[in-house]
Amino acid sequence: MNQTATSISIEEDLFTLNAYLDPFNKRIRIDNYLGNTDLLIQKAENLVQKHFAEKLIFKVRSEQLSHFFEKGFQPEAVVDSYFLGSDAYFVTKYYKVDRRVNDHWIIEDQIIKGISELKPVQQKIYPPDGYELKKAYESNAADLAALYKQVFPIYPTPLNDPEYVKKTMREGTVYYIFVYQGNIVSAASAEINDFYKNAELTDCATLSEHRKYGLMKFLLQELEGELRKKGIYCAYSIARALSFGMNAALFQLGFHYRGRLLNNCYIYDKLESMNMWVKDLASC
């Protein structure tokens, strides 16, 4: 089976839907829909069978939440103001028992508890000497791909491919990087949805020997500034539930925890759950 993720649009008499088919992570995500919910849910589940998916995710508006509950979906996370000011609930259904089991749930809960007890950073912090923060362009694609390949043995998207990195840039994704002695040592991106005015802060990676400087916080703050200039105020990020450092960075930047996507994608070295973090960029 082809492992390349694709987005498709389906229009039938009584509904339309936009689906993200993700064979590598064995999941299907419905990003947008309109019309008869019974028929579009049936169509989505037909896609699950056709593509041998183990998990189905719907981004649901609050006024339709109870209908999806009636169809057996369970809520896992919410993004405030995702749909032009209306909240989006990530509701899911599973089609394989193993995909519904999480042996790390207690540890992940403990990480969230520990992070909630952290104090915000009061003093202004600056990057150490020798680190240059800059916006990345297509000319940086090969070095970016090399960074992602080095940091993540497994990643949900093919960011180890320079051509894929260039493709995301052409589609509007913004990357910021730190360069040290001529090499990219840290990077993050904002994947922008211009229609609904939201953005996912994602693709966060720092080489292990440079992590002690908190470079990711600087990158995310720079991306936040870029989003504000574009009139994007709903920002969210999905972090590995087992990563104390990344979740702590988001918490200390003013993001709020909004749930956990169970066994959501293959990242780092296995199938992992991901924590949802949300920030209103217009309130700060």
Results as ranks from 00 to 15, higher is better:
residue 16 T to M: 14
residue 215 L to F: 07
residue 33 Y to H: 10
residue 54 E to H: 15
residue 278 V to F: 04
residue 56 L to N: 03
residue 204 C to E: 09
residue 162 P to H: 03
residue 42 Q to F: 14
residue 79 V to H: 02
residue 254 G to N: 02
residue 279 K to S: 01
residue 183 N to M: 10
residue 131 Y to D: 00
residue 100 R to P: 08
residue 252 Q to I: 04
residue 237 S to W: 07
residue 279 K to H: 09
residue 174 V to F: 11
residue 52 F to V: 10
residue 103 D to H: 14
residue 66 S to A: 03
residue 205 A to N: 03
residue 120 P to G: 06
residue 172 G to K: 06
residue 95 Y to V: 10
residue 212 K to T: 11
residue 14 L to D: 15
residue 65 L to G: 02
residue 235 A to E: 02
residue 26 K to L: 15
residue 21 L to I: 15
residue 123 Q to M: 11
residue 219 L to C: 04
residue 213 Y to F: 15
residue 133 L to Y: 11
residue 62 S to P: 15
residue 268 Y to K: 02
residue 216 M to W: 12
residue 201 L to I: 07
residue 160 N to C: 11
residue 41 I to L: 14
residue 263 N to D: 01
residue 171 E to P: 08
residue 208 S to Q: 12
residue 54 E to T: 08
residue 25 N to M: 15
residue 12 E to H: 13
residue 107 I to S: 06
residue 206 T to A: 00
residue 126 Y to P: 04
residue 144 L to F: 04
residue 35 G to Q: 11
residue 125 I to S: 01
residue 222 E to A: 08
residue 76 E to H: 13
residue 29 R to Q: 11
residue 177 I to S: 08
residue 48 V to T: 13
residue 37 T to R: 11
residue 137 Y to V: 06
residue 161 D to L: 10
residue 151 V to Y: 01
residue 139 S to M: 02
residue 242 L to Y: 07
residue 168 T to M: 10
residue 273 S to Q: 03
residue 232 I to T: 11
residue 237 S to C: 10
residue 125 I to V: 12
residue 58 F to Y: 13
residue 41 I to D: 10
residue 141 A to K: 01
residue 118 L to H: 13
residue 182 G to M: 06
residue 80 D to R: 05
residue 216 M to T: 03
residue 229 K to Q: 07
residue 141 A to F: 04
residue 79 V to N: 05
residue 32 N to F: 12
residue 13 D to M: 11
residue 222 E to K: 05
residue 222 E to G: 05
residue 257 Y to A: 03
residue 131 Y to R: 00
residue 268 Y to I: 05
residue 17 L to S: 12
residue 94 Y to T: 04
residue 132 E to D: 04
residue 201 L to P: 00
